[in-house]
Amino acid sequence: MNRLSRIEGHIRGVKQMAIDERDCPDFLLQIAAIRKALDNTAKLILTDHIETCLVDAVQKGNEQEVLNDIKKALDNFIQ
């Protein structure tokens, strides 16, 4: 939740930059920070998914479910 709140704050900052008519390089720097924060959040969620949901499915013998689940997660993350 903290990561998402920080991302939300960055986005509000970009909106304010538009209102203030800030320079383009400032916008690009903030957008790069937002993208990195989103990527790091997605990696954390994917790691948690692998360590909990997928491990649990493997332990229950649902290998095909595990493969389908990880493919779906990767397809959503890497587009």
Results as ranks from 00 to 15, higher is better:
H10S: 04
E51V: 11
I31D: 05
A18M: 10
L38W: 01
K15N: 14
L54K: 07
D56A: 15
K60M: 12
K72E: 12
L29V: 15
S5E: 12
A73N: 06
N76W: 14
A57W: 02
D26N: 05
N76V: 15
A57Q: 10
L44Q: 07
H49P: 13
Q59R: 08
L74P: 15
D20Q: 02
A57V: 07
A57C: 07
Q64V: 14
N40T: 03
V58D: 07
V14M: 08
N2S: 12
D26Y: 05
Q79T: 14
E8R: 01
I50E: 00
M1H: 14
D69K: 15
V66Q: 08
D56G: 13
N68H: 08
V14S: 02
R35C: 01
N68R: 14
L44P: 00
L29K: 11
V14T: 05
I31N: 06
L67D: 07
I19V: 12
R35T: 05
G61C: 13
F77H: 15
D26H: 05
M17H: 10
A18K: 05
N68W: 03
M1G: 08
H10Q: 07
N62H: 09
A42C: 03
I19R: 10
I7F: 05
Q30N: 10
Q59P: 03
E51F: 06
L29A: 12
I11Y: 00
G61V: 04
V66E: 06
Q16K: 05
I70V: 10
N62I: 11
D69E: 09
E65G: 13
Q79Y: 12
R35S: 04
E8W: 01
V66H: 03
I45D: 00
